[in-house]
Structure formats: C-alpha cells, structure tokens
Amino acid sequence: MARVPLAIQLGAIALAGAAVIVALPSFIGYDTILQITLNFAFAILALSLGFVWGYAGIFSFGQAAFFGLGGYAYAAAAINFGDSTPAILIGVLLPALFALVLGYFVFYARLSSIYVAVITLVVTLILYKFMGQTAKPSYMIGNAMLGGYNGIPAIPPLNVPGRPDLFAGPEEMFVIAGLTALAVYIGLRVLLAARLGKIVVGMRENELRMELLGFDTRFYKLVAFVIAAAIAGLGGVMFANWNAFIDPHVFGLGFSAQPIIWVMIGGLGTLIGPILGAFILSTLSLELGTQKTIDINLILGLVFTVFVLLVPQGIIPTLRKFWTDRRPARDPDAGANASREASSHG
C-alpha cells in the first residue's frame, strides 16, 4: 500500500466527513439528530483528552472542568451579549486562561504526573462545590444568574454573527457541532505532524532526553495543556448549546471520569479512538436510560471492566494490530512498511 501524503489524506477525510455531516440530518429522525449532536460535543471533549493524555502524556483529570467552564462562560456571555459570536470566543478563551494559570503552577513546579492528575481532579471538584453554592442572587455575571445547583437555564442558541434573530435550530446545530468536531480532529492531526506535535510526543516518550536536547519541557507541557483546555471549552460551548442549560454536574466526579473512560475504550494514543469511545458510550448510556430495570452505571462499569481486562489497549489500537498482523500473509511487501506505519499513524 503506497503511503498517502498527509495533506491529501486529511483533505479527503475533511470532504467526506463534511459531506456526511451536512447530508445526514435529512435521513435520520429528530431524536437521533439530538443524540448525535450531543455525541459531537462529547467527541470534542474526548479529543482534548486524547491529545493531552495520549500524545503529550499528561493525565488530566480536569478536562471536564474546562468543558464545564467553556459551557458556563458561553452561557453567561451569550445571555449578556444576546449574540453568540463573542460568547463562543469567551467559551474557548476562559478555560484556556484558567489552564494557563493552573498549568503554570503545576508544570513549572515539576510535579510528577500522579500529582498532576490529583490536582486537576481536586480543582474540578472545587469548581463543583463553588458553582453549587452560587444560588444566591449576588452571584450574577451581568444579567446571568449562576443559579447554584439549579444551573443556568434558557441559554441562547448559536446565531448568525450579528443577527441574533437568525439562530440555529436542531438540524443546523447538528451540522455546526459535527463540523466543529471534524475541524478539531483535522486540526489536531496537523498539529501532531508539525514541530510542536513531534516535540510533545518526544516528551511523552522520554522527557529527560528532550531536556538534554535543549527543549524546555515545562513550557511545552503547558502549551499542550492550554490547547487541550481550549478544545474542551469548545466542546462545552457545543454542549451548552445542545442543552440550552448547564449545571454544576459537569464538574462532578462522575462526569469527570467519563472522558477518561471514552479515551481508554476507544484507544489511548489515537485520535479516532476517543471519538469512537465517546459515541459508543454516550449512545449506550442514553439507550440504557430508557429502560428502568438495571442501573446504568452498573452496566457502564461492567463495560469498562471488561475492556480494561480484555481490550486494555482500546478498540482502535487493537484493530490496527489485528490488521498489521494479518497483512504480511497476503502482501509480501508489507513487512518492510509495517515498522514505518507503526510509528506514523495518527
């Protein structure tokens, strides 16, 4: 199999993906449109963790916090401005800024990865508690009431820039969320092929060597962390739009654990894996939610346990391994390429 240049590969994915996303709403039901729109928002969150954990090697338990901050920031800004365009920007920038400050202290103090995980988790839970006690009327951001555990209702939907009267309905929202997820995927593929991506992966593989070569690993970790937070924030913006509502449960322990499970089941160290994981588990929990016999978390926990025991690498790496193991028998030329491909797939 000849190796296709990255630009052509990504161009084809972008075109095919965009065509499917734009066409799909005409063929599926209203419920499915809503469900997949939510999956897209979750897929963006999963991609952010797939990047920062799978490629930069930073185990962030706080991606849900950035997602939640993005959602809250969008909600407050959209309610105040009445126009979603600056609100999207704020929904991305606020989590990025928050990550910049948090990451500065964490990485420049050279905390080991286990402490990074603990601190990001604790910060998430602090946000949960904090947002939960904002029911008092004094917690107003302009016209937006934070509302404590009741959350912020009636978040304005996305609108055409400058025209708040032209806003996105469920079908448009589906397309916007889908294209955003696709753009994030392509953007990350490009980023990983560029200098920054190589450095970040080198850091994951051997941090000391990178330092000895003259790379300031603290700085590059911070950059990766901030990028991932911005992406998670964008996912939160999509989520707040889908729901028209946001409450502190996005900072809860249960929600924070979800992206980690998506990435593990889909495949750590891939980008398509986290998307797949988010789609499968988010759909599964919705379908299971319609039946009343067994608690959903029990089944999700079982799924997770089975995966950790039987498919520890996740779906995508396992499929890839299965594929490369099979190929030499059919294609005598494959052996020479196998090692190159093993190190270059995205």
Binding site: G202, E205, N206, L208, R209, M210, E211, L212, L213, G214, F215, D216, T217, S339, R340, A342, S343
Partner: peptide
Amino acid sequence: PTHAIARQGVGIKTQVPNVFDGLTVRE
C-alpha cells in the same frame, strides 16, 4: 536548568541510553 545548559552548546549523553525506542534512527 538542564535545557538551558543544552541550549548554550552543551551536548549530554547519559549513562543509560536515553533514546526514543518507538522511532527509527533517522526519526
């Protein structure tokens, strides 16, 4: 810090090889 020493023109090779195992020599 270490990386700044390296940037000032000091090349360092540690006792246990610190290399990237998953990559080729050229990579």
